[in-house]
């Protein structure tokens, strides 16, 4: 298990990294925690000529507790996020998702930016970020742009990040629904990635749901919000009956993945089960 020959670069700051990406074009890959990229390189499914290692860039690290949002640097590890009190308080589902990723070593190395850039359909981050109404901050030679999470995931291993761009941060709004949120998953027994992962965030007023965001990963080749469920919840009380009614057709509108561990039918069923479990906890 050895990657093809490549050149390794260690930029001193984000601008330098972007310059390198510019110079090397599509022969180049960003290396963050390496916990998705290195396996890909070792299996020679991808053989870039250049690696730009951004794991040392302090600009990309850390969690900032702002007035209206929490900003998580793209280079922040899953472990740091799981342990952040600000995250636990303002968006518990995000801390829960972080804590459910892989094992200790993976959580200590892997980064949130790397995970969403990789966009594995079974990864844990996408559902919670969709449910959280997050924004992804992306930098390129022209400056910085922010992409609404709803426009970020484009398909299997594809995102809105363009060649020459780096994700610098993820912004989580401080909202009532994020404060009342949870993430549950049915882990694949081998990889522990999500066979089905469901993130649910619900705001209530006077006992009735005023805002609901429910998203899945693992189910379809692209993580998605289940609008049917969200609509079904809105305006109603949140109890076993309303949850059952709203989740009856979970994942009905997407094409569902199938493999030798979980068929399409079973996955769709699990989506309903996990939506009920997530919502039942809120």
């Amino acid at each position: 298990m050895i990657p093809s020959k490549l050149a390794y670069h260690r930029p001193n700051n984000v601008n330098e990294a972007i310059q390198m990406l510019q110079n090397y074009g599509d022969d180049c890959k960003i290396l963050a925690g390496g916990h998705s990229l290195i396996p890909v390189l070792k299996q020679r499914l991808n053989d870039p000529e250049h690696l730009v290692d951004i794991s040392g860039l302090t600009e990309l690290k850390g969690i900032r507790d702002n007035e209206k949002s929490i900003t998580i640097g793209a280079g922040t590890t899953h472990a740091e996020i799981a342990n952040s009190t600000a995250v636990q308080q303002h968006a518990p589902m995000i801390a829960q998702a972080a804590a459910s990723i892989g094992d200790v070593q993976v959580r200590n190395f892997g980064t949130i930016g790397g995970s969403i850039a990789h966009a594995d359909p079974a990864a844990d981050w996408p559902a919670v970020l969709l449910a959280a109404d997050a924004n992804v901050v992306i930098k390129n030679t022209g400056g910085t742009r922010e992409v609404d999470i709803d426009q970020f995931f484009l398909g299997l291993f594809t995102t809105a990040v363009q060649e020459g761009e780096i994700i610098t941060a993820i912004r989580i709004p401080k909202t009532a629904f994020n404060r009342n949120s949870t993430y549950v998953k049915f882990p694949h027994p081998a990889s522990r990635f999500a066979v089905v992962g469901c993130a649910a965030a619900v705001a209530k007023e006077g006992g009735n749901v005023t805002a609901a965001r429910v998203a899945f990963n693992g189910v379809s080749s692209k993580p998605f919000r289940d609008m049917g469920i969200e609509k079904g919840l809105k305006g109603n009380a949140l109890n076993a009956d309303t949850i059952a009614a709203a989740t009856k057709n979970a994942a009905a509108e997407v094409s569902v993945m199938s493999d030798h561990f979980a068929s399409e039918k079973y996955r769709r069923h699990l989506a309903g089960v996990y939506a009920r479990r997530a919502l039942g906890a809120l």
């Binding site: 694949h188 027994p189 081998a190 493999d259 030798h260």
Partner: peptide
């Protein structure tokens, strides 16, 4: 062989 890696060949683990 469809499950020739640890991503999809399930080895039992302590927490099972």
């Amino acid at each position: 062989l469809l499950n020739g890696t640890y991503m999809d060949y399930t080895m039992p683990r302590a927490d099972d």
